[in-house]
Nucleic acid binder design. Structure first.
Lengths: 216, 216
DNA sequence: GAGAAAAATCTGCACAGTGTCAAAAATACT
DNA sequence: AGTATTTTTGACACTGTGCAGATTTTTCTC
């Protein structure tokens, strides 16, 4: 029963190995090509080549092309999660500042890794692995947000207006809005400003100095 | 320049031809296999075979497998649209009845052509042709709904609470809810009941006799 | 530390599916 | 019949994926 040590879909062990370098190289190559060629132009052969291995070898590290994408999404999303937690735990304990930082960081993530984020949203419905990675990230962000919301005074108990429900709705709204901005070539900054506005309103925080571009 | 008479992605003329029979046969075969085999198991070869032609010939009628799906979505959605318009123009001029019929008919469509509808939702983000067909249907339904909403007394003028905005939101909500019910194996009837409730509330129509299963 | 055993990594090829195309066959038109 | 148009075919190129081993790296033993 050595199958216990195997990862689903691959023949590789889960144990720590140096081949993790290759894994990272594969993900790097994938992200780069996702940017330049798009999700379709990016082929297993070109990824493998850029990572210095053959097509077949890539399937040693990942069970499929989609699993590569899923891992890429997971990696990108882990960064965002870490930044959010750090910002939340950091000096910025005032709910308003935490929210501003959260929205800003999310927007920055979309700016720097827009293609990955966009791919995650688009492939979620059809690729279970991606859906899982993405959904777990959203849930984690929603949870962090819930903490802020409670500190801002939202009720904790179960109910349609409790901190958890509002936080979830806000996070999904943000996903949707930034995705739309990315796809339609709209301004991420404007979207972020709008989002922050709604966030503050939803949590009942008086809008102090929001993002730039105040108007009307 | 005879290309003007050509359809994008195919070599076939747009002009009326008898080969439309084959086209329908292809779509029928596709829908059947979509039900039995799923979107992945369904291959161009099997569709062509079921339609009595070879793989290559299929590409004479449709530019790609996705175009077949897109045409299937368009056909299915055209049916729903026609039914909605008929029901709206019909005897049921009372907004409440029109809404009930609309929701019921949409739910029935999901019951009878669930696989096609589901495929439309899932492939919309990645297949432009499908996205276009689906989106246009949603817009059309939203417009019909807007008419009902205005008759129900919602303001027509532009604004975040006007009939058009509310109608669009309701239609998208319905899409989402019925999709979720289909995917998660939930009850379409229950979903429809909930939806009708929200619809009536949103349009300010007193809930007379809603669908079965009243509670609380 | 040499050498064997085991594990990790990689290669090369096979196979099925999609999409393209030039040329053949069927059909319609005059 | 003769010609133009529609429809079909068959072969080809490319992609994703599976797999049987070959090769390299690590681990263990003496």
């Amino acid at each position: 029963m050595e199958d216990d040590r195997r990862e689903a879909g691959t023949r590789r062990r889960v144990a720590p190995t140096k081949g993790d370098l290759r894994e990272r190289a594969i993900l790097d190559a994938a992200e780069q090509q996702l940017d330049s060629e798009g999700a379709d132009g990016m082929t297993v052969a070109t990824i493998a080549q850029a990572a210095g291995i053959t097509r077949g070898a890539l399937y040693f590290y990942f069970g499929s092309k989609n699993e590569v994408l899923a891992a890429l999404v997971a990696r990108t999303v882990a960064t965002l999660r870490a930044e959010m937690d750090a910002a939340d735990a950091d000096g910025a304990s005032a709910p308003g500042d935490a929210l501003r930082q959260g929205v800003e960081q999310t927007a920055r993530m979309w700016r720097e890794h827009g293609t990955v984020m966009r791919t995650a949203v688009e492939l979620s419905p059809t690729v279970p692995a991606i859906d899982q990675a993405w959904r777990s990230a959203v849930v984690a962000l929603a949870d962090t947000t819930r903490g802020i919301a409670e500190r801002a005074g939202l009720p904790a108990g179960p109910g349609p207006h409790d901190a958890a429900a509002v936080a979830a709705a806000l996070v999904w709204m943000t996903e949707r809005a930034l995705y739309q901005a990315t796809v339609s070539g709209g301004s991420l900054d404007e979207a972020a400003a709008t989002l922050l506005h709604v966030w503050l309103a939803a949590l009942g925080i008086p809008a102090g100095a929001e993002l730039g571009g105040a108007e009307g």
